[in-house]
Write a protein that binds this DNA or RNA. Structure first.
Lengths: 167, 167
DNA sequence: ATGAGTGCAAAGGCTTTGCATTAGG
DNA sequence: CCTAATGCAAAGCCTTTGCACTCAT
């Protein structure tokens, strides 16, 4: 479960939707102000790191990226929590040591995850529309059990390139 | 994130494969002995509670079911960890307060989960074979990103009957 | 007797919170 | 100026670990 620098780890798995930084910051600023919160330098930095990461990052990774020097751990967690509340960030629990955070799907588009069972790395992963449509269909099965479905989560678990190469 | 007693919460979502208790304990005993471990009273109890639960349970829930009185929390965690190692139990991280534990799929059959975003309750959920087959197909997409796929995880998130009734 | 299992209490590790200080509008 | 945001340190919470005791074979 070690972690290199974010830059090292970004790798080739690109978003189908690379997110325009310009628009991104405008949108985020708007959402924060709508909640009478300020788009402070640290929040800006956190958003920038997440956008650059292109995959869910842990707090240590976010701090290591250090687009804002000397950001306190507690502040980073607080920023992330606030950004989650205004719908800019989403928390991703992969079940490993740290929680991970990514930009909200309203900013990056709907996607799923590839989770490495060796190092805990998580990459984005897009599936064909037809598959996505099939998922919608399943909501009916859930409803039959009395559940009111809001969303879904689909992960492929396995080994990332770095881990199945060496291990 | 409150939790009632296990018996209260089992509800109607039944396994398609209700697991024969007789066979279950025989199999578990075999797997433990194969690792030169004993099928102690507390391990037996934990397995029984999980089988009765029919859905992933938290440690508090397992202790509350109390099929074995006065089982220490640390012992329960230790038992669960050992049972995971011999392939009898699987740990399910739902991303809420507690981890959850269920009998291994080799004992209950492959299934997915319905996760309540209000109370954290998790129920089992089976999908049509054709959907499951579609998932296999996706492994190819992941492989294209350099991932070696081992398994998958699919959850529907929403509100359980108890939560969308009251809230 | 001998090794496995258990209970109790303490330690760990990630995340959150309190509070005084700093900064932004 | 007035409120929001930050840093530091302490507290929380779930889970794991150390160690002496007990139990089963």
């Amino acid at each position: 479960m070690s972690e290199g620098t974010v830059d090292t780890m970004v790798g080739e798995a690109a978003h189908a939707d690379p997110v325009d930084l310009e628009d991104l910051h405008v949108t985020v600023g708007r959402r924060l102000r709508a909640a009478s919160m300020r788009y402070s330098r640290s929040r800006y930095s956190v958003v920038e790191v997440l956008a650059a990461g292109g995959r869910p990052l842990t707090l240590p990774e976010i701090l290591a990226a250090g687009h804002e020097q000397g950001l306190a751990q507690s502040s980073a967690y607080r920023n992330l929590g606030e950004l989650v509340e205004v719908g800019v960030v989403r928390r991703v629990e992969s079940g490993y040591d740290h929680s991970r955070f990514e930009l909200h799907e309203s900013l990056t588009g709907h996607h799923h995850h590839l989770v490495c069972i060796d190092c805990g790395r998580v990459d984005d992963f897009e599936v064909p529309d037809e598959f996505e449509a099939g998922i919608e269909g399943l909501a009916g099965v859930a409803r039959a059990q009395g559940f009111r479905v809001e969303s879904h989560r689909f992960d492929m678990l396995g080994r990332c390139p770095a881990c199945h190469g060496s291990a």
